[in-house]
Amino acid sequence: MTAVAAQAPTFDCRADFADELALLARADERIVAVCNDSVGSSNLVKFREEFPTRLVNVGIAEQDMVGVAAGLANAGFVPFVSAATPFLTGRALEQIKADIAYTYRHVVLCGQSPGMAYGELGPTHHGIEDLSWMRAIPGLEIIVPADPAETRSAVRWAAASGRPTYIRVPRFKVPAVTPDGTPFDAGQATCLADGTDVTLIAVGTMVSRALEAAELLGRQGVSARVLNMTFVEPLDVTSVVAAARETTAIVTAEEGLLSGGLGAAVAKAVAEHHPVPVRMLGVPTFAPTGSASFLLDHFGLNAEGIAAAAREALGRA
């Protein structure tokens, strides 16, 4: 970790998710929350106190939870479904496909504590498959905020979009990385650092670590571009292809399975439009038990690991 990053304050984005949702609910009576006995872990205690008739707690019944949300959307409400990522996306995958995406209902699915944020609870509680599963479903927008500002923007955008949307809400604390005034548009990446040698494309918890990696590479004479790919679906293919044309290699970093996630989406775009070496960083298999910080380091999902992958990719160019 760089000295700058070590001094930067970090934030639990669940608080920003809950605050923004309550703010929108005060202005729009259509907004409701649906959860699976996860009021506390979703930071919805204050929402329940302020809007007791607009929070539906179905208990530990994720398939029912998504079905109830689809019914509410059909009745004109804008439901935000909030649950731990592995249970929302794993247990209710059929309902997400059939009741939300296929019927194109305006439901916002909020995967809380994604990736390996529940570290010590082990693989049953790790939410590393969600990006792969959600990308396989047509018509579903997929947003992975990198910090508090993007989390709030994602909630606002999803509430107004009219589209079925999946948002990853980080539990692992992250620093603020989004510059003031950054627009938030579907399918639009944000360039956080420019570079000419290699491009680092990251999402969520990996964005701040990609910026740290760019600093490390800079001290080693390597110029690194950093793209925050907030929307995994629709992917900003234009920015990916520009990176392939304007730099020598690409590294992707995500706190999720390597098969089918961000890296797979980027590799497809590169292969179809302008092939260059692509090195994908993520989780290759079920993760062991340990703290979230330990697990990220274990899989090389840190500044040093990203920088090493960039040097490797440049060596293949």
Results as ranks from 00 to 15, higher is better:
Thr2His: 12
Gln7Phe: 06
Phe11His: 06
Asp12Phe: 08
Ala15Pro: 03
Asp16Thr: 11
Phe17Thr: 02
Asp19Cys: 11
Leu21Ile: 07
Leu21Tyr: 13
Glu29Ile: 04
Ile31Glu: 07
Ile31Tyr: 10
Val34Cys: 00
Asn36Ala: 13
Ser38Gly: 02
Gly40Glu: 13
Ser42Asp: 06
Leu44Asn: 01
Glu49Pro: 12
Val56Cys: 14
Val56Phe: 15
Val56Lys: 13
Val58Tyr: 00
Met65Ile: 04
Met65Leu: 14
Val68Ile: 15
Ala70Glu: 08
Gly71Thr: 07
Gly71Leu: 09
Ala75Leu: 15
Gly76Pro: 14
Pro79Asn: 07
Val81Cys: 11
Ser82Ile: 06
Ala84Tyr: 11
Gln95His: 00
Lys97Val: 05
Asp99Thr: 05
Ile100Ser: 03
Ile100Thr: 05
Tyr102Gln: 13
Tyr104Cys: 09
Val107Gly: 01
Cys110Val: 01
Ser113Ile: 03
Met116Gly: 01
Met116Pro: 00
Tyr118Pro: 00
Tyr118Trp: 12
Gly119Thr: 01
Leu121Ser: 11
Gly122Glu: 04
His126Gln: 06
Ile128His: 01
Ser132Asp: 11
Ile142Ala: 06
Ile142Ser: 04
Val144Ser: 09
Pro148Tyr: 11
Arg152Asp: 08
Ser153Glu: 14
Ser161Val: 03
Ser161Trp: 04
Gly162His: 08
Gly162Val: 09
Arg163Phe: 04
Thr165Cys: 05
Phe172Asp: 04
Lys173Glu: 15
Pro175His: 09
Val177Ile: 11
Asp180Gly: 13
Asp185Trp: 12
Asp185Tyr: 13
Ala193Ile: 05
Thr196Ser: 15
Asp197Lys: 04
Asp197Arg: 02
Asp197Cys: 07
Val198Pro: 00
Ile201Arg: 02
Val207Ile: 10
Glu215Ile: 08
Leu216Ser: 09
Leu216Lys: 13
Arg219Leu: 14
Arg219Phe: 10
Val226Lys: 01
Glu233Gly: 04
Ala242Ser: 12
Glu246His: 13
Leu262Ala: 10
Ala264Ile: 08
Ala264Asp: 14
Ala265Val: 07
Ala267Ile: 10
Ala267Leu: 15
Lys268Leu: 15
Pro275Trp: 12
Thr285Glu: 14
Phe286Asp: 13
Pro288Met: 09
Pro288Val: 04
Thr289Leu: 14
Ser291Pro: 09
Leu295Ala: 08
Leu296His: 08
His298Val: 01
Phe299Asp: 02
Gly300Glu: 04
Gly300Leu: 04
Asn302Ile: 02
Ala303Lys: 06
Ala309Arg: 03
Ala309Gly: 09
Arg311Glu: 12
Arg311Trp: 02
Glu312Cys: 06
